[in-house]
Design a protein around this nucleic acid. Structure first.
Lengths: 209, 209, 209, 209
DNA sequence: GATGAATGAGTTTTCATTCAT
DNA sequence: CATGAATGAAAACTCATTCAT
């Protein structure tokens, strides 16, 4: 009743195909309402084949959430490692990357999936906290401390709570997923506003005369 | 064909009880994984009784999300309406209320539920956007414009994107729900940091000489 | 949520009201799909009240089927008892009564209900067979035998199978219930056709020369 | 979350098996009181498998009613098409076929099911009227008209109401289903009586001397 | 490896029946 | 007598998972 390819397809990317299909499917309908059959159809394979690569629906979900975000984090980290210059430029670039690669891409769906299903997947949360969230917070904190050392940023409490720096970006990501049809968000202008308020909030007082 | 038991008198507040129980249950397990029977048991009633008050699981969920948040919004609005004084004090109070009444209370669960299940409930999203989100954004915008008029805030782009102002609070809310066991958040200090960065980011330059 | 009369209504006809309401309801939706609540609403009373008059849904159904048909049978029987004249006139009158009082009235619904639900109600079938069907068959047989005695009818096998005489009428009754929207039946003309064929089929050969 | 067992190969005739099982089950308990699980057990398969072949209980019921009757009608039609000889012989054969193939077989259950549940299945009624009832009526009408043309039958009103011809057979079918334990019917003798009365009722007067 | 027919546990929803008022 | 809120058994239907081919 379906029309899968009977021949031997490239099997190298088979797992990748499944993860792509699963990301789409979970994004659209969430964990519980997504049927394995949907994922299979999207991937152009049969239901049973999914189970050759993932032992359960839960494992597939975890696979999706783990697979796509880490590489982005790597990129943000590399940015900081290779940076020479002022901390505010670095922070600009870090947030620009977050907006481009996550908030403005399909990866924002993963943010939402994590918020949505996280409590059902404690191990996944642990992984995420260690491999994504904590790394991201550390990266921001490093930049802020660099700025303070450089005298660009005033000593400030964002050092202890880098979430304050990231908050508006995360909110933008989920906003677009929920309310875009009611009130679309111009992400570029939004990011500009975010950086405008943030950098001024962090900056050392220009009390010079 | 069955063996029923009783026919108690109508208990006042029954609907309220159900909503409370449903909030707890949905918070714990999300929409799909929550069984109506769980809600009933929590409310100390039988499954069928739920259906005397809500025609479906969907309607119950919508009932929960609608019931608890609007009164809080009302309170934030009243704040602004009754305020005499500087805009930065008002903004402080508005955000303090958000942290106290929502981010630091069980209502943060509703934020998460909305993020999680929103796409499955388009009508609920429309309601929420109109009755909660849009009102909240308008309230913040009004305060920001007041500050600009008072000369307390510089003309700034947060007027166009009040989400930037709210973002860190929302993030804190969901953070505590997901990562509190890995990295607990001191909400009071967090709120202080948020206001510190934010108010400085909005403030007029003290370029006095 | 409903609007029952709170005052003390005439209680004499209460059971009758319920039976009327139940006939309507069962006719419309059959036994299983009819809700006691529907019957109650139709009768203008509350659900619980039904149970003051009938101990169960089954009993209510049996009540309906028993209540309405027997009086009609009585009338057909009286016809025969009081008849003076030829058997073919009597048979005409008997069938005319069946067409008028049952086939062409809402009582045809009871025929259908009995066909539909009979197997689930063995006692009801027993009652019906004894009190309705057997009496009706006996009545027809008596008329046929009268006709044979009078020399109006030839000795014929309908004496042993009065169902043959009744068949077309019963079929007409259910036909109108099922197919009237596709092929409406002119019951008067139909009855005429029925009698035409039947009486000729029963008549003694007019082999007179 | 579950503990499934097997994945057998497709069995040819599986749909046929289900229809057979469903006919038995619906015959015994009617539409509403038949549980899908009963049908499955009778067919020797599991509940879920039914849903691989029929999307709902309604569809299964319609499948049953459609599946069994049409082939019989085809046979009756062929009779007439291939007939050479007098119309009364043809009518005898047509009715004999109806008695043998439907009234005296398990197909009489389908008659009863249709009477019982028809009003709940308007599409099924439409199908039935077009594909079974109307064809049957047309077949009888054709025979009657042939008889009139042959001079075997007098011009008569059964031409307009072939239901009159069929009525006693239908009644016999449902009678056996309802009342056989109270008053068993000798179907052969009954059919003989039916034909006796009917053919005489249709016959041209033998007024010759 | 890949398939997809088959399984059956699990969940929502309905509604006959009860009984405190 | 009458009410109708409450109960909970029952059944349709879904879908993750298995496994013979």
């Amino acid at each position: 009743m379906s029309t899968p390819r009977r021949g031997r397809p490239a099997k190298a990317g088979r797992q990748e195909d499944i993860l792509e299909a699963a990301l789409e499917a979970f994004s659209r309908t969430g964990f519980a309402a997504t049927r394995i059959d949907d994922v299979a159809r999207r991937a152009g394979i049969s239901k049973g084949t999914i189970y050759l690569y993932f032992p359960s629906k839960e494992a597939l979900f975890e696979g999706v959430v783990r697979h796509f975000m880490v590489p982005k984090l790597d990129r943000v980290d590399e940015l900081r490692a290779g940076h020479i210059g002022s901390a505010d430029d670095l922070l600009r670039m870090q947030l620009a990357t977050v907006y481009r690669e996550i908030v403005g891409s399909r990866l924002r769906e993963i943010l939402r999936l994590l918020l949505a299903e996280g409590p059902r997947f404690p191990e996944l949360l642990a992984f995420y906290h260690a491999e994504v969230v904590d790394r991201a917070m550390a990266g921001l904190r490093a930049t802020i401390e660099l700025g303070i050392a450089q005298g660009v940023f005033r000593p400030n409490s964002a050092r202890d709570f880098p979430q304050v720096v990231m908050g508006p970006a995360i909110l933008a990501g989920v906003w677009t997923l929920l309310f875009d049809s009611f009130a679309p968000l111009d992400l570029d202008a939004y990011a500009e506003a975010h950086l405008d308020i943030l950098l001024r909030g962090l900056a050392k007082d220009r009390t010079g005369c």
